[in-house]
Amino acid sequence: MAKFLLSLHLLAAIVAIGPVTVAASMFPRTAREALAAGADGGGAGSVRVLHRITQVYAAIGIAVPVLGIGTAQVMGLMGSAWIIASIVLTVLAALVLLVLVLPRQEAVVSALAGEGAGEGDRAGALAGLKLLTMGTGVFSLLWAVVTVLMVVRPGSSTHA
């Protein structure tokens, strides 16, 4: 059962977290170009697609910690420091995505769609891209650290 859950956990991580990370990291540059091009330029469609990918795969990504916790319980590892650290970092990554990345992406999508205050809305969305870029970087870094913890497993009984 543990190998089956671990396999599902790894598949979910690859299928869900990879696309979220890539789409979220591509979004700021694509959004900057689309906002700079204005109403006459293209790019709004690409921005909407990247935002949608981020949303959908973030929802699918919920399976990663659920399967990870299930796997850790079956393997009797829930008290391990690396598991606890991974859970904390995963929660932080989820918070960054939900509080920082997705709302700022939504603001850009709305600005490009012309919803809101027009040029002022575009200027605000453009100004928020620096924070969005930082947020996507932090999100990616947190997942990278979790991945390293899963491989190195400090203090594990396998000494791998």
Rank of each mutant, 00 (worst) to 15 (best):
A13D: 05
A13H: 04
V15R: 07
V15C: 11
I17E: 10
I17G: 07
I17H: 05
I17V: 15
G18R: 04
V20H: 02
V22K: 00
V22M: 08
A23L: 06
A23V: 05
A23S: 14
A24S: 14
A24L: 00
S25D: 06
S25A: 12
F27H: 11
F27G: 07
F27Y: 04
P28G: 09
R29G: 14
R29D: 13
R29K: 13
R32P: 01
L35S: 05
L35K: 07
A36P: 03
D40V: 04
D40R: 13
G41C: 06
G42W: 00
G42E: 02
G42K: 00
G43P: 04
G43R: 04
A44R: 15
A44T: 12
G45F: 00
G45T: 07
S46K: 09
S46V: 03
V47L: 10
R48V: 12
R48W: 02
V49D: 02
L50Y: 03
H51T: 05
R52A: 09
R52F: 05
T54N: 06
Q55M: 13
V56L: 14
V56C: 06
A58S: 14
I60T: 06
I60W: 08
I62L: 15
A63I: 04
L67A: 02
G70N: 10
A72Y: 03
Q73W: 06
Q73A: 14
Q73K: 10
V74N: 09
G76H: 02
G76T: 01
M78R: 08
M78K: 03
W82E: 02
I83A: 09
I83W: 01
A85E: 13
V88S: 01
V88Q: 09
L89C: 03
L89N: 01
L92S: 00
L92M: 14
A93Y: 12
A93I: 10
A94V: 15
L95Y: 07
L95H: 03
L95I: 15
V96S: 01
L97T: 13
V101S: 06
L102V: 14
L102W: 05
R104F: 05
R104A: 10
Q105S: 11
Q105K: 00
E106P: 02
A107D: 10
V109M: 03
V109H: 01
S110K: 15
S110W: 00
A111E: 09
